[in-house]
Design a protein around this nucleic acid. Structure first.
Lengths: 120, 120, 120, 120
DNA sequence: GTGGTCTAGACCACC
DNA sequence: GTGGTCTAGACCACA
């Protein structure tokens, strides 16, 4: 996996996991890859994956069954969706709108760009 | 100035400076506050401001006349606008659109939110 | 390490690093000493080494893996060689030739001096 | 006049003056431009020119007649030639040769480049 | 352990 | 006055 320079790796792994859950590749209540396996796949230190799993467990997105492995929570998809939506609307969007105003990008421009990108 | 927790101060100062240039408060080719002055105004260590100024000089946004001070580049506004616009469209927007699709936020929703926010 | 009076330390450290790369002591893609280690070895403050490393990273000579350390770039030697050669030929040589003409030093004189110096 | 970034202005002015003397444009014992005039011509603070004149006076290249102006010394050309030659051979050349060895530039290459440049 | 950032304070060259 | 550099020391996030 390719990592961004300016965001910590464990957060980028979290993003990846949110993706998996939202896209349905990791259905609710299912077992997910072990820390070791994901670390190998991502070419990353297992400690780093551990940190991500622990964080997601703390916020309730993951469950840990001792000696067996990690599982998505029973309502994982719904939780992630709600949490990310709130984050997006409350924190990211205001910053985005601010940037748009500074750069003179209108919502219409955005609409246009969105359509263009969707075609690709 | 109030600083955000999760972004380094010197980068937030850079954002402030981009604002000043884009909004026309610091016209092209004009002298800008000395490192010491801005440090006092921002309630920050001069070294921190130095770091910002040096970075903006390296990227061509600022010019430096020895013993006199820092100046905005001759085409500072145009450069900043172009650079930030390209960054926004090429790097930030794809990520935003991706998030929107995952969360089921449509461009229409966005438009609505934009209008709502503009009224505040 | 002994430092020259008239050139800043962090630039002299950069010169040292170019040497290491050009001479093959630091092969491409290899880990180099940590900031703290080099600082101890050079009897210099770690911040000073940080400045050098950051500069070389910005210009692409070094790469950084978070929490692990700094590495020479994959084509570090080639890059450094090309860059320094171009600088030498385009910027330093014209000035040198200019001085030689003013002082009446001919290329033959130079050749002679070179041979003499090589023997020492 | 265009100034180099990494060398102080007063030293670059000194270089300019050495040029004038060596090339014979400022013959021995002749009056040279006043500080004020040279400062205007160079678009520089008069203090900066003062510093250069003082330095050259201290080393004997210039003479100052109070209320009249600055003059080149009686043997200015000869002095400058000797001093710069010694500097060149003792300080600059060793560094140049060192760089050449690192970059694999041979004296023959140099000879070739010199001839090429002389034709332009 | 690694690097990244920030502060406080100092000294210097330069304009 | 200006910026440039360096030190000492601290705290933090990260692997």
């Amino acid at each position: 996996m390719q990592f961004n320079e300016h965001k910590s790796i464990y957060l980028q792994i979290a993003d990846y996991m949110y993706d998996q859950i939202l896209s349905g590749q990791w259905p609710d209540g299912q077992r997910i890859p072990s820390i070791r396996d994901l670390a190998v796949q991502m070419e990353v230190n297992p400690n780093t994956v551990t940190r991500t799993y622990t964080m997601l467990q703390d916020e309730g997105t993951l469950q840990n069954k001792r000696g067996i492995g990690y599982f998505t929570a029973d309502e994982a998809r719904k939780m992630v969706l709600g949490k990310r939506r709130a984050d997006f609307i409350n924190y990211e969007l205001p910053a985005i709108f601010n940037t748009m105003r500074q750069l003179g990008v209108t919502p219409e421009d955005l609409h246009e760009l969105f359509r263009k990108q969707s075609k690709e």
